[in-house]
Amino acid sequence: MEFRFFEIYRSSEYLLLLAKGAGVSASLAIGGGLVGFLLATLLAVSRYAEVPVLGRISAAYVEFIRNTPLIVQLFFVAFGLPLLLGYSWPFWAHALLALTLNFSAYFAEILRAGFSSIPSGQLEAGAALGIRKATIFRKVVFPQAVAAMYPSLNSQFIFLFLTTGVIAEIGVTDLTHAGLYIDSRTFRSFEIFTALTVIYIVMALSFKALLNAIYRSAFKWRTVR
């Protein structure tokens, strides 16, 4: 058996496909991560604050998402719901919605743990100063919880990013899709999947480094001594 990595690298068409695919994967992961984080905040807050009906719905939602496979959620959003609601979006939009819903449940669970981990003394100190509950939450609990849970959020995001390859299944031209396409054209499976592995590792480590840099600048108080 003879491996020919050059067959991929020599072809500018393939390189471009991989680069574009990496861009699509990164964009959808970042988009899903950001919107998912916002949604997760709402979910976690409604549970933490024990908002009557909403809190329970959030809890059920989080359990539902965390106990079903991403690919089923994806197919549901891409093929199931459109039949019911009559929408037809581009593939990437279906993927973004599915990823957002999926990320939000995992982030919500982490955030909720973070909120509960804030010492009650911090809440009492706020209340003693006459600060309203909502303000204490916004200015004390939330920032402290996000900082405390940042490492978990960080690694959860990386993990979720690595699962995004399944969006290739609904036709989104992400990195995995590019790999599968090149493989089907060249039959150079070893070379192409080696390349894919390396690209995913580089991207995951870059995300990690970026998120750590954000941590250091956004949460200076955790790193100063």
Partner: peptide, 28 residues
């Protein structure tokens, strides 16, 4: 009141701790 511990907000600078303590009356 001054509590034995956790009275100050660890994520805020000295100045911001006081700003937060003060802002509530105003905003009310």
């Amino acid at each position: 009141i001054v509590f034995q511990k956790y009275s100050v907000f660890s994520h805020l600078t000295v100045e911001d701790n006081l700003i937060l303590a003060r802002e509530f009356e105003r905003s009310r």
